[in-house]
Design a binder for these strands. Sequence first.
RNA 1: AACCCGAUAGUGUAAUGGUAACACAACAGAUUUUGGUUCUGUUAUUCCAGGUUCGAGUCCUGGUCGGGUUGCCA
Length: 562
Amino acid sequence: MSEPEANPEPLDFVRQIVEDDNTSGKWQGKVHTRFPPEPNGYLHVGHAKAICLNFGIAAENGGLCNLRFDDTNPEKEDVEYVESIKEDIRWLGFDWEDRLFFASDYFEQLYEWAEQLIRDEKAYVCSLPLEEIRSGRGTPSEPGTDSPFRTRSVADNLDLFHRMRAGEFEEGEHVLRAKIDMSHQVMLLRDPIMYRIRKVEHHRTGDKWCIYPTYDFTHGQSDSIEGITHSICTLEFENRRPLYDWYCEYLKIHHPQQIEFNRLNLTYTLMSKRRLLELVNSGFVSGWDDPRMPTISGLRRRGYTPQSIRNLCATVGVTKHNAVTDMVVLENQIREELNQTADRRMVVLDPLKVVITNYPEGESEELDAVNNPEDASAGSRKVPFGRELFIEREDFMEDPPRKFFRLGPEREVRLRWAYFLKCNDVVKNDAGEITEIHCTYDVDTKGGNAPDGRKVKATLHWVSAAESVPLTVRLYDHLFVTEDPDDTEDESGSWQDNLNQDSLKTLTAQAEPSLAAAEAGYRCQFERKGYFVVDQDSTTDERVFNRIVTLKDAWARAKKKK
RNA sequence: AACCCGAUAGUGUAAUGGUAACACAACAGAUUUUGGUUCUGUUAUUCCAGGUUCGAGUCCUGGUCGGGUUGCCA
């Protein structure tokens, strides 16, 4: 009766926990997750993994996923970030429906809970200066010492805490601390800070508050208020789980389970919001959405699709050990998608003039070119052909090495969708540089096939010199020259030393006319060169194309090996 | 020298005590009007030492290596 299932997709360890909980009835079959960004920067592809995980698990289990901003540090946060984060999540294809929340909406409740802990003698106002709180905490191997204010009466604590809120004290004069254990082996449990005084305007609450709760005193309770079942976060919060549990336990509130997974890292880039902000501020990149940035907005502008990013997140897996995924895994996702869906177009990035000496002067014709060999429904288009063309400079060599299949003196190649072409002569300037080449074409090979069955070893892309249109093309490369930005030559070096100074090259290319009217966001393949997208900087006079990714290039690889 | 977490081909993951596998990368070949795509094949893996067991990547003990913890950041 019960046939074994045909290779069920293996569950990652987080999904396994969720499934086990559903089986045991731990949460009565309920699954409720959340994605809790701090609005202090733009989302990056590492966040995409968390988004896919949280929204994905909810969807797969008939549950819900909230969007909650963890906005407890007004000094670094801003509405600009709130809006960009919402846009990026929507663009990725996820929907929080009516469940948009802010931790700052819970400030009043949090304040009451703080009072409750004071009354329960689980919290106290500590009036030690910052340095003394730090030194009093000890080190991982030596216990800390109790604050002299640890024994303050409940009445005094309540009074002081109220006056903190009322703004009677300056920043740093007092903090509220949990009373746990100053000699605990887990440093975090040595009377952690719950509230600090910050006389700073908050992007949502304005000047209503001058005391702000810390992450630890906010996050678990926010989860609790929202009825979260599985609080999924990254590995660096592992150490904080005891405190998450402590607050839920002593507050006697709904207690979600925190589960930590490994964040996404990619080679040749970095995922630190602080460092990405530095890159933006330094001007090395044009902004958070610079197409070299690993931000969602950067990848979007680079031409990546939501599907390609979701596919990456599905591919990398979810475990508990620090992993670095090769950038080519991301690149392959967009290549795979665009190979199926993108139009092919001919664009010459580095033009070399070709004169076809046996083509009648003053004449031209239109040839049929297939739009996408992977998709017959994409149809075909007309491309103009004439006596003078441009081909890619690197597709011609006067003295070709052994494995070079492209054009050379007395060699014959195919012009894509056009004719066979043979080179007869090379014209140079005084400096010895090739300025143009003279060729003849075989009129019987129209469309690219020889009736006599002869073969050529290469097919080149080309454009008509008279009818091509100029395009601004931005060639992007890795942000860093090393796989690991921190891998500096000497120890005094910094990650900035590894920035790729050649990560952006701008040039003017010659394109077939059909590209003159391409609209922002249009993606296509420049045949033999890569996938490109029209950038938002385009104007009616100037089309700007960003290179999303190159094609795989066996010839380039062979050259590099030598 | 304290505590927490981790370790499986080059990279990322699977194997839920029972034949170590998949994807990407690399390499070789076939096909090809993109040196693209597609197809075929090859190379290569359980950190170490003990223990439990008929049987250990998986369980136990010890070690090694890596990451994290000493913010009034999240």
